[in-house]
Design a protein around this nucleic acid. Structure first.
Lengths: 160, 160
DNA sequence: CGTCTTGTCGGGAATGATTGTCAATATCGG
DNA sequence: CCGATATTGACAATCATTCCCGACAAGACG
């Protein structure tokens, strides 16, 4: 289990112990063991995961965490902008956000998310901003569609 | 109000009786009175409205419609792509979609939505498409942020 | 004209994710 | 070691949404 936090864990992985603590502090949360576990469990996931899903995962690994804690932690991280929030099938899902400007390409088939760096597309974003003084949140741009993999596996243009 | 469907109503308004029927048919729904009322009530709204909210509104106007019907109709319209779905405060909200490509600028403060026509921004969208073969849904691009009005009314950069 | 068929409707119960409550517990400064 | 403070978790409560099912309307058909 995670009973001993060995130095072997110190590679610069998303789940690195230091990294996790830093992120938690950035969200204004003290890095308690439970919160760490929640964030660590989230960091391993590539797709947005629901709070309950995460809770089950943690429990299965033998970590004793309450549902409330999972919800609270995720909610706080989301408020701090450290994780991005997606809604799918009437369930709120969370995904650890990479730092820096990027858009999210959300596949409505599989629910997967690709991050698409902004940068050279700044012009477009600026154009949007100009429209009525709207100020976009750089991390909160969602393009929905169907990802390449789903397109390949399930035909070109299904009636849906 | 809409009590008498006089010929005067035949301007190309969103709530036109013909228009409503057409849209319903487009969604594969026969234009029954209740469904018409739901769609008409939706058409008047500029901001995304929740199903229950719409139900209350209809009831208050003296129209006897069941909750189920409202949910069912909205859901069907959404599936057909005739209305766009937004989620805010853990409530699914619907908004009648203008035809043609456009993005949605969603204000996270007031929940308002502006439609921003695509067109000349096609290049950007194409760039996105190139990324891993992702095929975006032209109506399902959501840019979140804060709208000009909210910015003006509530200060420049509140801590949120 | 009466009946059958099919689709629609509404009310209320059931579902399921999320949040609130509150006592128990851990943490930290001194 | 002690008290103040923050955190935690079990469980109840909430609330949007869906399910269920009997009732009903309109057209088809004999």
């Amino acid at each position: 289990m995670a009973s001993h936090i060995a130095p072997a864990d110190r590679h610069s992985h998303d789940g690195s112990a230091d990294e996790v603590a830093v992120r938690l502090r950035a969200a204004g949360l003290s890095p308690t063991p439970r919160r760490r576990r929640v964030l660590e469990a989230l960091a391993v996931q590539r797709r947005p995961v629901g709070a309950h899903e995460l809770y089950v995962e943690l429990t299965r690994r033998g970590h004793r965490v309450g549902v409330s804690t999972v919800y609270r932690t995720l909610s706080a991280l989301a408020d701090a902008g450290l994780v991005h929030v997606f809604v799918r099938d009437s369930e709120t899902r969370y995904r650890l956000c990479a730092p820096g400007r990027h858009y999210h390409l959300v596949c409505r088939r599989c629910g997967g998310v690709q991050e698409h760096p902004a940068g050279d597309d700044g012009d477009w974003l600026d154009g949007v901003t100009a429209a009525g003084g709207f100020r976009p949140d750089p991390h909160q741009i969602e393009v929905q569609g169907v990802c390449g993999r789903c397109l390949r596996c399930q035909g070109d243009d299904p009636a849906d």
